[in-house]
Design a protein around this nucleic acid. Sequence first.
DNA 1: TATGAATGAGATTTCATTCAT
DNA 2: GATGAATGAAATCTCATTCAT
Lengths: 213, 213, 213, 213
Amino acid sequence: MGNDYRSKDKFSVIIDAALEVFGEKGYYTATISEIARKAGVSEATIYEYFGSKEDLLFAIPGEITTQAVEFLEAMSPYIKGAENKIRASAYGYFNLYKNNPDYSSLVLLDLKHNRKFMEAEGYQAVKRSAALILDAIEEGVRSGEFAEDIDPYLVRSMILGTIEHVFFRWHLKGRKEEVADFIDPMLGIILGGIKRDGQPRAYQINITLPPQP
Amino acid sequence: MGNDYRSKDKFSVIIDAALEVFGEKGYYTATISEIARKAGVSEATIYEYFGSKEDLLFAIPGEITTQAVEFLEAMSPYIKGAENKIRASAYGYFNLYKNNPDYSSLVLLDLKHNRKFMEAEGYQAVKRSAALILDAIEEGVRSGEFAEDIDPYLVRSMILGTIEHVFFRWHLKGRKEEVADFIDPMLGIILGGIKRDGQPRAYQINITLPPQP
Amino acid sequence: MGNDYRSKDKFSVIIDAALEVFGEKGYYTATISEIARKAGVSEATIYEYFGSKEDLLFAIPGEITTQAVEFLEAMSPYIKGAENKIRASAYGYFNLYKNNPDYSSLVLLDLKHNRKFMEAEGYQAVKRSAALILDAIEEGVRSGEFAEDIDPYLVRSMILGTIEHVFFRWHLKGRKEEVADFIDPMLGIILGGIKRDGQPRAYQINITLPPQP
Amino acid sequence: MGNDYRSKDKFSVIIDAALEVFGEKGYYTATISEIARKAGVSEATIYEYFGSKEDLLFAIPGEITTQAVEFLEAMSPYIKGAENKIRASAYGYFNLYKNNPDYSSLVLLDLKHNRKFMEAEGYQAVKRSAALILDAIEEGVRSGEFAEDIDPYLVRSMILGTIEHVFFRWHLKGRKEEVADFIDPMLGIILGGIKRDGQPRAYQINITLPPQP
DNA sequence: TATGAATGAGATTTCATTCAT
DNA sequence: GATGAATGAAATCTCATTCAT
């Protein structure tokens, strides 16, 4: 435990430092040297744990995202109704990004643009979580909760795109103010736009024409 | 005229080459040397036209975006109704991104993450175009077209976020298939979610009349 | 005359600009581009008149120094006495350096350190003027004006070294105050130290020895 | 100790190589690449030890000069009489320049012309040593050893100017012959020129005795 | 003659990465 | 396991210089 513990500690320490530095400066501008300094280890030590700068980058999301997604997946069976599932996922993203600003900066500004990462292991969790949303939307269509002519992929893009866009701007603007909870209003609009609800929409009405002479 | 033509040509040739290389490899991975090779000029020549690699990057959007935005702005007064204005802007983005894949790759994958660029001149056009959408939304709220409790900034984020997200994924997936026109369905959902309910949406319905006896 | 005049003008204009820029920034830090700008000609034009940056550097002293030295040489026969000849030469240097600060900066800070220049044509005038001083000193020794055990080369080094040192420091200190006339005091000391004069020095006294037994 | 030794070695090895190359070619013409080659290290290694080419240049005098000056300063209190103090300092310069030809070349041909260096730390030692001379001269004036109407700054300029001029020419002429000891003759002249006349200069005379009957 | 335009040739500098200890 | 020290490999950028017009 002693060795293992110490070892694991150093691993985490490096990851944390890398997250912080990458998050602040971006992948290319960040240097191993600064990460090492912040982690309190030598540069060479970083290479004991991670094969390369890119490996270190890719190793970061593994932990954080996986944890968040596993929580969501575990919760999923207990949530009833497509809408609630979507809401849960959306809040999952929201909280993940909000509570881990360096991480979200890293993901939104660096990782997302890295094709290699998209194919790397660390991205699997993100994919699974995106799949959860898609499933929920499709479930909603099947169940009649949502209109059947909607494109589930588009709806998911709207949800994820909005969340990313808001956090993205937040980062670029220097993370000054806190990000308000925009999930409910956003879902209000999107769900309002795709729900097939009791109150028939205008385009669903039946018109009774007066008898023609 | 001859001279001028040749000069302008070289400027454009470099911009085009840079657009291509930056678009493919990203700003940091791209090298001046490759851009020079692709442009068919020497590296030194690039520095005759652009002071630095970053200047070159920032010079790219100036032309393309400005043109697109100016068209939108010129058109704006002739478009009546908030919804139509929004639609016009959304299609503006859509077409811009769709017709200039290298450019959209560059903007979405590189420029957007560059704080310096956000403050640079080339970005002004993008800002103006984003302002157009916001104005339209606010106009819709004032006119009663849209519910008054909506957050115009959120709505704009939804529109832009969705567009960016879709194109973003398209780039990361290798631009294989053509991007379908998702603007109408997207706006259908969003506008459907923000329109003031009392207002009958007669204009959206298709009526099939029963056969007349 | 028109052509020639114009042509000569441009030559001078370039020399003057070069003198100014070299004098201010030093040879290596100065750029042809800045000289061209200051001269109001294109860089290429400079190469019409001078083969290279170094040629331009070497061309500068030719005019100024030659003029000053020729004046000295012309005057020389009319000056009587070693001391007066030395004084004339020393003041020649003094005035040259004082009245042409850029030139003296150039010579003291750049040209002097350039072995190629020492062998170049432009340096001949300087050499001739240094020879004048040497001749005068030797003349003084021959005539008995100066002590015969002095080293004329050393004396010349003292004169030139002092003048250069003073102006050198003046340049490095930013040419703030005007350089005072230190030639007379300096020569007072040096000549005082080498003159074999009527007022017998201590070492020239006659000793009357007590009668030897 | 082993490590420390090796480390110090490399530092010195680079300094020595730089001294040699700068001394030979001058600062601007010298290249890091050649210094690295001569030092037997990579260019990158040089940058591990010195932040920039200029830093490397400025780091050179620190050691050599400081040592020489500290020796002088330590000796100073034990030397009695202004004249002897001046002589000691002058020989200090003389030996420094003579025993370290590369160094003196560097100082006289490169460093002295660098305004930044004049303000840099490495130059402090030179300044202190120049102050020593000035103090000695002023002491001589106060004590009546020297005439009171002399300008101590001028006298110092004469001493330093002469020394620099002689070594300077030596370098430019290719350091062929050895530099003779010109300090004593030079001081003989200068001191002869500034000494208060009343004081008999018994120690300088050669006496030829008349034939004894 | 004059020059706008283009470039060859390098120089400095930066960093990720390696390796002996 | 940890690291100090060293470096290979590039990349950006600068300028003196050339040449077609």
